[in-house]
């Protein structure tokens, strides 16, 4: 299934050809979880990565629906 991923924070440095307006389109097996998504992108949870969809932070075992648009963010504590 296709998933559209927008990446934020310093995680973007991993994707030199990243285009802000389109993000990245990746192919995942149906039923893939947040953990699978991060593994596919080679983003380690130790980088403080979290995934949001529809304005909610997703748990690692959450199954991502097909054609989803998700955001990969880093943990930040304050401004």
């Amino acid at each position: 299934m296709k998933v559209n991923v927008k990446v934020y924070g310093t995680l973007r440095d991993k994707f030199p050809d990243y285009i802000d307006s389109t993000g990245i389109e990746i192919e995942l097996p149906e039923g893939a979880t947040v953990h699978d998504l991060l593994s596919n992108l080679k983003i380690s949870e130790s980088q403080g990565a979290v995934v949001t969809m529809d304005y909610r932070i997703l748990k690692n075992d959450f199954s991502i629906p097909k054609n989803a648009e998700v955001q990969v963010l880093q943990t930040v504590h304050s401004g």
Partner: peptide, 25 residues
């Protein structure tokens, strides 16, 4: 070692919060 103070803040500063807080609604 903390990604927040060791990576995000030095590169993007506190403006890094615009994306996560909007993404949380």
């Amino acid at each position: 070692e903390d990604p927040f103070s060791g990576q995000v803040m030095p590169n993007l500063g506190t403006a890094a919060l615009v994306a996560p807080v909007n993404s949380m609604g």
